[in-house]
Structure formats: structure tokens, C-alpha cells
């Protein structure tokens, strides 16, 4: 090997397209690592898949119980509520499969001082930590959610229009961004308080509320779940979009709110990073 200097390795490519290509490539590699890790433990893979199916059943129980005694809840019929549950299941799959594992790992990094290695790499630190760990068995949840959608719309007897479907998918993207942003805020907190187990537990509990349509909640709770911890944006609005019950103004406002949320989260993360002083060795 010839003695080439590191900074001569390759001229840095600039431009958004090249940047996008580079990060898409990085994302692919991170995905491959996660898949390889998952396959190291085959039994684990099967057990976790089975547990995912079990949890999906558990998610349905409260809805089945409530609709066992009533025809509708806060203006939502049984199959309509199932659409909300399906969204909830889908989002939980994304959250537990792709968002939480990586960000939980950040907390560990901070505690052990190994975040240093992430910060030493010539790539965006937020990107690296956010895509570090993906648990592929949550695909089971995704399949379950799709089945639930199919069953619910079969019961309603009317399928969503292409426009409704498009809005629904756009909202899925938005919901993921919001969830991710909330998690980044939680993780940023770990730079200050080191141990955030309780915060992530609180986050999980709040997220559980998203299985219900927002109209179920009244007064202060509804305000909190719409603006502070916006579960309305996560499951109710997407469900309404699919059912063709969401008006354009609400949709646009939701979109703007979601993006603003993401921007704030990014700022807080950068602030937290600047404050970070790694654990002494």
C-alpha cells in the first residue's frame, strides 16, 4: 500500500444530490448491520416475532371490550376505531422497530462515554445514532396492521379513495417524524440527566393513549394530546384521512406543526451535543 494521506483519499463531493446518495448508502450499510445482528440470534428472532403477534392481540382487547357493550364511542363506530388501532399498530412497529432501539443505544453511549466514537466520525452524528439499530422482527406488526386495515374497511364496506390513501401515507411520514422528534428530545435530555429510563417509560405510557381516537379525551387531556404530546397527529388524523373525514385546513396545519416540531428537536439535539462532555475514562 502506498503512503497516501488520509485527506487525499477522495475529493469531497458536494451538492445535495451527492449528499443524499452518500447518506442513502450509509443507511443501507446500517440496515445491513442490523439485519446481520438480528440473524446472529435466530431463536431470538422467532421468539420476538411471536411476542409481536401476542402484543397485537393485547392491543385489540380494550377496543373489543368497549365495543362489546356500545355501538359507538365519541362518534367512532367499531370498524372506524379499528382503523385507529391499525395506525397505532403500524406506528408502534416503526417506533419499536426502528426508532427506540437506536435512541436507547444513545443513552448507553452517553453513560459509557462511547458516544466519542460517533462524534469522531466524519458524518452527521444525529444520523449515525438514529439509524444504528433496527429490529426487523417488528415487520410482523406491519403485516398485522395491514390485515387490520383490510378487515376494518371490509366491515365498513367502502374502500379509501386514492386521495385519501395518499393523505394517509403522507400522515404516516409525518407521524414518524413527530415520534422520532419526541424521542430525540428525550435522548437530548440524557446529556443533562444521564439516566432517562423513566422518561422513556413515560413516553411509552403516553404513546399507548394513541390507540384511542382523540375525541375520546375531553378537556385538558385533549389539549395535551393535540398540542403537547400530539397523539392526535399520530393516529387520529391519519385514520380520519383514510376515512375521508379530514379537511384540508387541519391537514396543512398538522403538517406545518409536525415539521416545526422536527426543527425544534434538531436544534435541541445540537445544543445538547455542544454541552456534551464525555464521561471521564
Amino acid at each position: 500500500m502506498t503512503a497516501t494521506a488520509a485527506n487525499e483519499i477522495r475529493p469531497r463531493r458536494a451538492g445535495p444530490a451527492a449528499l443524499l446518495r452518500r447518506y442513502a448508502g450509509l443507511f443501507r450499510v446500517q440496515l445491513a448491520m442490523s439485519a446481520l445482528t438480528a440473524m446472529q440470534y435466530r431463536a431470538d428472532f422467532v421468539v420476538k416475532g411471536l411476542i409481536a403477534i401476542l402484543w397485537m392481540g393485547v392491543t385489540l382487547v380494550p377496543v373489543l371490550v368497549v365495543f362489546g357493550v356500545r355501538k359507538s364511542v365519541a362518534g367512532w363506530s367499531f370498524p372506524e376505531s379499528l382503523v385507529v388501532v391499525a395506525w397505532f399498530t403500524l406506528l408502534r412497529a416503526v417506533l419499536e422497530g426502528a426508532v427506540s432501539p437506536s435512541l436507547t443505544a444513545v443513552v448507553e453511549h452517553v453513560r459509557h462515554g462511547t458516544l466519542d466514537f460517533v462524534l469522531l466520525k466524519p458524518a452527521d452524528a444525529q444520523f449515525l445514532v438514529s439509524t444504528a439499530k433496527i429490529e426487523p422482527w417488528h415487520l410482523v406488526d406491519v403485516v398485522g396492521a395491514l390485515a387490520l386495515f383490510a378487515y376494518a374497511f371490509g366491515k365498513i364496506g367502502r374502500w379509501p379513495s386514492l386521495l385519501n390513501l395518499g393523505t394517509g401515507v403522507a400522515f404516516l411520514g409525518l407521524a414518524i417524524i413527530i415520534l422520532y422528534s419526541i424521542w430525540i428530545l428525550v435522548v437530548s435530555a440524557s446529556f443533562w440527566v444521564i439516566k432517562v429510563d423513566n422518561l422513556s417509560y413515560l413516553f411509552g405510557s403516553l404513546f399507548d393513549a394513541a390507540r384511542w381516537p382523540i375525541t375520546v379525551f375531553r378537556g385538558a387531556l385533549r389539549v395535551v394530546f393535540t398540542f403537547v404530546f400530539p397523539i392526535a397527529l399520530l393516529t387520529t388524523y391519519p385514520a380520519m384521512a383514510l376515512l375521508g373525514r379530514l379537511d384540508l385546513k387541519t391537514a396543512l396545519a398538522a403538517l406545518g406543526g409536525g415539521l416545526a416540531f422536527a426543527a425544534i428537536a434538531r436544534r435541541v439535539w445540537r445544543r445538547a451535543l455542544a454541552l456534551y462532555t464525555s464521561a471521564s475514562s
Binding site: 494521506a5 485527506n7 459509557h112 462511547t114
Partner: peptide, 18 residues
């Protein structure tokens, strides 16, 4: 960051399971 490296004998970057 391309120019430098930091090796810390007490910490490691290798992926544990792979």
C-alpha cells in the same frame, strides 16, 4: 475527522455481536 484517529484503550467501537 478524516485526518485523525483516537484510540482509547478502555473503550471500543467494534460492534459487539458482529
Amino acid at each position: 475527522l478524516q485526518l485523525i484517529t483516537l484510540v482509547m484503550g478502555q473503550k471500543q467501537q467494534l460492534l459487539w455481536d458482529l
